[in-house]
């Protein structure tokens, strides 16, 4: 009965949503919208070829600061709730073949993530996606080599160090923006460079790097504190 009622309510809400979203006008009701400006002037105004990155880390950089802070808050919360003093004793990991294969593969995963982070203003991707890939390396280490390997290579203290460095880098770029352009997170035109080259697009590159470090280390900490107790039993 309860399931039936829930299904009816859900179906009703979904139907209402479908009908209403269908009736949204095809084009924006305002003609002077930001999206038109973004499409036309993004390269000349920011020097970034990737419009999405330009919007995320230049026009609406404050939102990105808030969003990466949400991840920071999640990490702090999870560490607060799951923190244990005991160190994990992990399994020996998977077989030798898997270990050797991933030993060769892992540097390339790292390289890919660094590429995605640093080329955020040129190609799809950016600090967030690259940072998640960085965190995946921790997962590979924990599953393939056992979590004590991960602990010895990258202890949680070092991850915290990387995470706060990333956060402070983001904040620092914002404050440098005050000094150079007069507004927080402003994109200094002196750093803009030639669009299309790697060192261009002003503050977008360091912000990407900051977000990448923050997100990567943060998600690695989350996964690490999740598995602690589990692997201890094996």
């Amino acid at each position: 009965m309860k399931v039936f009622l829930t299904a009816i309510i859900l179906a009703f809400t979904g139907g209402a949503l479908f009908v209403n979203l269908g009736s949204i006008p095809d084009s924006f009701l305002l003609s002077h919208t930001a999206s038109r400006f973004y499409r036309e002037a993004v390269v000349t105004e920011t020097g970034a070829l990737n419009t999405v990155s330009a919007i995320l880390y230049d026009f609406r950089a404050f939102d990105s600061l808030g969003e990466s802070t949400v991840i920071f808050a999640t990490v702090s919360g999870i560490v607060l709730l799951l923190s244990r003093k005991t160190l994990p004793v992990s399994s020996a990991g998977l077989s030798l073949i898997v270990k050797r294969t991933f030993g060769i593969l892992t540097p390339f995963v790292f390289l890919l993530s660094v590429y995605i982070i640093l080329h955020g203003h040129l190609s799809p991707g950016g600090g967030f996606q690259g940072g998640v890939l960085l965190a995946v390396i921790t997962i590979i280490f924990c599953i393939i080599y056992g979590s004590s390997f991960d602990l010895s290579r990258y202890p949680p203290q070092r991850k915290t160090l990387i995470e706060t460095t990333g956060a402070l880098l983001f904040l620092g770029v914002g404050i440098i923006g005050i000094a150079l352009t007069g507004s927080f997170l402003g994109n200094p035109s002196a750093w803009r460079g030639v669009p299309g080259t790697l060192p261009s697009a002003g503050s977008i590159v360091p912000i990407n790097l900051g977000v990448g470090l923050k997100v990567g280390a943060g998600l690695a900490i989350i996964f690490y504190s999740m598995i602690q107790k589990t692997l201890k039993r094996q």
Binding site: N50, V52, S53, I116, P124, G125, G126, F128, Q129, V132, L133, V136
Partner: peptide
């Protein structure tokens, strides 16, 4: 592609 990359990862 940006969203797709994030979604996959």
């Amino acid at each position: 592609p940006d969203v797709a990359l994030a979604e996959v990862v």
